[in-house]
Design a protein around this nucleic acid. Structure first.
Length: 558
RNA sequence: GCGCCCGUAGCUCAGCUGGAUAGAGUAUUGGUUUCCGAAACCAAGGGUCGUGGGUUCGACUCCCGCCGGGCGCACCA
């Protein structure tokens, strides 16, 4: 007999079979197997009987009885109970659960991986900060959520490409160029002549200084040497963009985030992709000329007003290259694309999707997917740190990494549902104490590592452990938690909700700590010792795997 | 005014395609170390799930109204 570890899908099949027998006319009903909150309700529960009560016009408990009678035999089932209004509670044998220990130890880093993605391609675009300044906390959240999402999707069987798109053309870059040039000329933001749209941060002065010193910069495979010519706006633009991209890239690397593709807006122009998109849109018949501008009738596709494509000065609005960029993604074979952005860019969604629909090239409605994260407020000493972009003062990602460390920063930024606003408490993230969940999880891993080190045996030996000896309440709780892990990955991938990983790990760590405090592992009985060590080694493995998804380290000592 | 997101314990937040007595951390209070790491554990208190309706066997979850907070509503991105 093959070892069953995915009890949920196993039970789902069994109940589907019973359903076909009991109610053949309703064989299409969804068989929902869930984990009850309360242990007394069993390990899994099925609500099928209650769902069928109405269509079958029979009392749910009657149907439950019939379903149980028709349920195929399975040696993982300890017992079945009818409870409440008609729930069928399933208790799994401890013996069946114990297999998970070897399952984890054998699969190692691969434990928890599922194949729902089926190897399909998915392009995930995230951060995509414009090269007009350093990355701030908001970008940090995008980086943490996006990267973790990529890890989760990969673990769920998707073929993931990480992509970063940046605007190196357009009005904001002109403002950047102009700001740097003014700084080169010795004008400061305090000067009355400093333009309203100018960038005021000190980093502008750094760029100006580097430019005048004719420094060289490497960024995104580009090598840019500053000419130092204050009157060469094109040279300044090139240099400033490369300089800031390099800074951002250093921050991202320090944050453990790496991209497969960097896409430049300017390339969409030089490749002719923007022009091609415009021609296609005009040919589609969804455009019109008005007030010296070219408009796209996005209202044909659900937008609340039409949008300008080509401004009266002849240049394009940002959304045209955006559409061109997404057309390019589509052509590169990404039948699935997920864009992770700040919620402040929410308004682009309808526009981009409308543009893609107008192209009429077979892109499905609602493509691409979006994950929007809400704003981040930073707390220091219990006080909100005000962010003023105009004054050029804000909490940079670099500040956070330097001050609270990469692990805690990533954890805090990824551990919340993207939809909810996030309060980043610097003091809490920094605290190396019991109120910091990052260390709580890492500590569980370090504790296990310490025990295994003290034992000093070969890890291989644990593969032969008699897991049948693991039957205390603490142990079965941990076994079930380990069994749950692949389902957590599946849910996180399904809902595009990486924070679920963080919550799962906190629970797993809590169960481990309880077990640890209540038990001894290095006992005289060799069999019991090995069994327990095998269990905690498996827990450590899953903590490592989960923290890996979050991009957080799993230290052996701390 | 319109659109999107949020409102759950004092604070920070979970709550899986509607499921059984709503959870965790923190804070507060009281316990636990001759023993593998106490950055830990155990226990107690703390809630009309913003609010009013609706849908049904069943609603924190779905629908509508209202209240409150955030974000967006450019020929900026």
């Amino acid at each position: 007999m093959s070892v069953v570890l995915n009890f949920k899908s196993h039970l789902s099949e069994l109940f589907a079979q019973a359903l076909r027998e009991v109610a053949p006319d309703h064989a299409g009903a969804t068989v929902l197997i869930e984990r009850p909150k309360q242990a007394s309700h069993g390990d899994y529960a099925c609500n099928l009987a209650m769902q069928l009560a109405k269509p079958l016009r029979r009392p749910p408990r009657d149907i439950a009885k019939a379903l149980i009678a028709a349920l195929p035999e399975s040696d993982v089932i300890e017992k079945l109970e009818i409870a409440g209004a008609g729930f069928i509670n399933v208790f799994i044998t401890t013996a069946a659960k114990q297999h998970v220990v070897h399952g984890v130890l054998q699969a190692g880093a691969g434990y928890g991986h599922v194949h729902v993605g089926g190897g399909r391609k998915v392009g995930v675009e995230f951060v995509s900060a414009n090269p007009t300044g350093p990355l701030h906390v908001g970008h940090g959240r995008g980086a943490a959520v996006g990267d973790c999402l990529c890890n989760v999707l990969h673990a769920a069987g998707w073929n993931v490409t990480r992509e970063f798109y940046y605007n190196d053309a357009g009005v904001q870059i002109d403002n950047l160029t102009h700001s740097v040039r003014l700084r080169c000329l010795g004008v400061t933001p305090d000067d009355p002549s400093w333009p309203e749209t100018g960038y005021r941060g000190d980093y502008i002065a750094d760029i100006a200084q580097a430019y005048l010193a004719q420094e060289s910069v490497e960024a995104d495979d580009q090598h840019v040497k500053a000419s130092g010519d204050v009157n060469d706006a094109e040279a300044i633009r090139h240099f400033a963009v490369a300089y800031l991209r390099r800074e951002q890239d250093l921050d991202l690397r320090a944050f453990g985030v790496n991209f497969d593709v960097f896409a430049l807006e300017s390339a969409l122009y030089t490749d002719g992709k923007v022009e091609e998109t415009v021609s296609k849109l005009i040919a589609s018949g969804h455009t019109y000329q008005q007030d010296d501008a070219l408009w796209l009738r996005t209202t044909d596709f659900g937008d609340d007003k039409d949008r300008v494509m080509r401004k009266s000065d002849g240049s394009y609005t940002y959304f045209v290259p955006d559409v061109a960029y997404h057309l390019d993604k589509w052509r590169r074979g990404f039948t699935r694309v997920i864009n992770e952005q700040g919620a402040d860019h929410h308004s682009t969604i309808t526009r981009v999707r409308a543009g893609l629909q107008a192209l009429d090239v077979g892109i499905p409605q609602g493509w691409p997917d979006y994950v929007l994260h809400q704003m981040v407020t930073v707390l220091r000493n219990g006080q909100e740190v005000k962010i003023s972009k105009r004054a050029g003062s804000y909490v940079t990602l670099r500040d956070l990494i330097d001050e609270v460390g990469c692990d805690a920063t990533r954890y805090f930024l990824a551990a919340r549902h993207p939809d909810s606003q996030l309060v980043f408490d610097i003091d809490l993230a920094k605290s190396k104490s019991n109120d910091n969940p990052v260390y709580y999880i890492q500590y569980a891993h370090a504790r296990i590592s310490a025990v295994l080190a003290l034992w000093g045996g070969e890890r291989q030996a644990l593969l032969q452990a008699e897991v049948g000896l693991l039957d205390s309440e603490y142990e079965t709780t941990l076994l079930q938690k380990l069994i749950d892990y692949p389902q957590v990955i599946e849910n996180a991938a399904q809902d595009l909700a990486p924070h679920l990983i963080a919550f799962y790990l906190k629970e797993l760590a809590a169960d481990l700590h309880s077990y640890y405090n209540a038990s001894r592992f290095l006992v005289d009985d060799e069999g019991i010792k090995r069994a327990r060590l095998a269990l905690v080694a498996a827990v450590a493995q899953v903590i490592r795997n989960g923290l890996g998804l979050l991009g957080v380290s799993a230290p052996e000592k701390m």
